[in-house]
Nucleic acid binder design. Structure first.
Lengths: 121, 121
DNA sequence: GATTGACTTAAACCATGGTTTAAGTCGTAT
DNA sequence: ATACGACTTAAACCATGGTTTAAGTCAATC
């Protein structure tokens, strides 16, 4: 297995190292592996998992909910249904948020049209 | 002109009164009119303006930027171009945010598919 | 004339999501 | 052997966007 350092992981993911440490402290990265010197080492699986966390973060899932998801993962297959339901509900919430943003953007577009019209006179 | 109280305005807009007061304190509602007893009174124009603020908020414009917009409004027509540019740039940012959310949702959808598949076996 | 409900204020408080700091350890290159 | 860069920690700090509290005023109702 190939492992990378926290600086390498942070660079690959495009986030600061401090954020990765913060996520670990919050319980989003359980059972982190360390080298002999106590440094965090990241397997490809870990990186892939961090990407999922970043997807959830990008779609505004609160850390506390991501934590719930991680805790369910640790419990094993018995929680698969709970995790599925969580993701389905989250997806629904995201679609609604996008819809709200899109609607609000239409109100803003009217303003843009008004200003554009004013300036073209 | 018809005026409504803060409680009525809050009800119409679907936000708490405390938020309206907070916005005023932050400079988003300049020159608020008051009745003889010192209570805020909201004209229809004010309500319409608050709706714009809510659109901007829904699309994650920071309060400091909304404040900039309000300050430009107070300066009059000489700032129309600045306001237009601000809104155009904001629109671009919102479209990018929606795109990021949509992409991230695809990563989440893969998880949903995996879980669904697992559970159907 | 006392109570009620709606309003006022300034200031304290809160949650969220990190970021920064200070003090120290380790492995490698000079 | 020492200096360097990368790493470690816990704790303090920060910004954002409100919400809540405490103390008080006012107009209309009982």
């Amino acid at each position: 297995m190939k492992y990378v350092s926290i600086s390498e992981a942070a660079a690959q993911l495009g986030i600061p190292e401090s954020t990765i440490r913060y996520y670990e402290k919050k319980g989003l990265l359980p059972q982190m592996e360390r080298d002999e010197a106590g440094r965090r080492i990241f397997s490809e699986d870990r990186i892939a998992f961090l990407k999922i966390i970043i997807y959830l973060k990008n779609t505004h899932m609160p850390i506390s909910s991501i934590r719930q998801y991680v805790d369910w993962m640790l419990e094993g297959d018995s929680t698969t249904e709970l995790r599925l339901r969580m993701f389905q509900e989250h997806k629904q919430a995201v679609l609604e948020e996008i819809a709200l943003m899109t609607e609000s953007l239409q109100g803003i577009d009217k303003k843009i049209a008004r200003y554009t019209n004013y300036l073209s006179k």
